[in-house]
Amino acid sequence: MLLNQFLLLAAALFAIGVYGVLARRNGVLVLMSIELILNAVNINLVAFSAVRETVGGEIFALFIIAVAAAEVGVGLAMVLLLYRNRRSIDLADIDQLRG
């Protein structure tokens, strides 16, 4: 197996995740797209770890999984707060900070 095929797969997933973050208006769907991006990064880390035959990259992938869990917890709490206050999780409606 070539290293490139893993890196290109990760690049494709990353690009799809970027599209999702930019095009979606539902807060939960934006968080899901961010998970896609983090998983693309994890594929890269594990692939480089396999090429170098060390465990460093795998350990960083584990750290990213833990940080992603924390991020989803806080992110969903914020989306719930948004829904409770405004009865909508459409991110296009959130423009109080716009100058």
């Binding site: 197996m1 070539l2 290293l3 490139n4 893993f6 890196l7 290109l8 690049a11 494709a12 990353f14 690009a15 799809i16 970027v18 599209y19 930019l22 692939a47 396999a50 090429v51 035959e53």
Partner: peptide, 24 residues
């Protein structure tokens, strides 16, 4: 933006890691 990200990242990857192989 998504296509640009894919093209730029893919181009850089293909340019940098031509035939590195994973054979663990």
């Amino acid at each position: 933006v998504g296509v640009l990200v894919l093209v730029v990242t893919g181009g850089a990857v293909l340019d940098s890691f031509g035939d590195a192989a994973v054979n663990r």
